[in-house]
Simulated assay, not measured.
Amino acid sequence: MRSLVLTFDDGPDVRYTPLLLDLLKHENVTATFFVVGRHAAAHPELIHRMISEGHTVGGHTMRHQNALLCTPSAIRDDFKVSIRLHRELTGTALRFFRPPWGISSPFMNRYIKKYQIQRVLWDVMAEDWESQTTSGIISSKLKDRVFDGAVICLHDAGEDTGGAKGAPRRTIDALIHTIPWLKAQGYQFLTMEQYIKGVDAHAIQQRKKGLVWP
């Protein structure tokens, strides 16, 4: 049995995230959502639904800002607010964090280490945010690039952070066709929490750069 981790950045978005959750529930697939704090605070019902349906929720900063353009105090305050908000919304400590655009700084790394949070990057992208892409192109890229143990990064939001208008809808449409194909190839879908626990040790051994330990 092969394994992969589906992850989604920049949400939740009330227009797209419920549709994605409906699809994942229909396919009996769990995923990991790296949510932007201000969006999560605006739609706590979506965070509660993620948790209740077995998904893992991680952090993606409060406002999706580039770490290299933030002052040390801004990064410190962002972590403090994010950690408090995550506990309020999920009832658990923040365990997983993905920096916006995958960009960290020495100050961000300091707080990741201080709060004992796992920094998570990715192995596979499908450029699903681009204006010229289509659901078919996204699906083809995923099929071509996936491998055993891959951490896949997609988006259920992001129009306010550089993504094209309507891009998450194309991602969902791509997954409607891609998830059944992945299942047919023998892939099991893990949350980041399951991945870390070593539910599938072989997949973890095969992974490349998706997980970065602080």
Rank of each mutant, 00 (worst) to 15 (best):
A74F: 15
V14E: 10
V199T: 12
H64F: 04
D123P: 00
A150I: 08
F97I: 07
G11Q: 08
S52I: 10
T92D: 11
I83D: 11
R84T: 13
H86W: 09
M125K: 15
L182H: 02
K114M: 11
H86G: 04
P99H: 00
F189H: 04
G11S: 09
I179A: 01
W101R: 11
R38C: 04
V36N: 04
I196D: 00
Y16H: 08
S73D: 10
M192Q: 13
G166N: 01
I75Q: 03
P168C: 06
L211P: 05
D144V: 14
P180R: 01
H55N: 04
V14F: 12
R207F: 01
D10Y: 05
I47K: 11
S73Y: 11
H26W: 09
I112A: 00
V120M: 06
G91Y: 04
K197P: 06
R15Y: 03
M1K: 15
H55Y: 00
G186Y: 05
A67Y: 05
D148S: 10
M1P: 12
N28V: 05
P106F: 06
G158F: 07
A126G: 01
V124A: 02
S104R: 10
H177A: 15
D160I: 14
R87Q: 13
G186I: 03
L69E: 14
Y115N: 12
R38E: 03
L46E: 06
T133M: 00
R15C: 07
Y195F: 14
F34Q: 08
L19E: 10
A67G: 06
T133W: 03
L175V: 03
L20I: 02
A167N: 08
S73P: 05
L19N: 01
A74S: 13
T161F: 15
P100M: 09
L19M: 02
L182K: 00
L69Y: 14
I176P: 01
D144W: 15
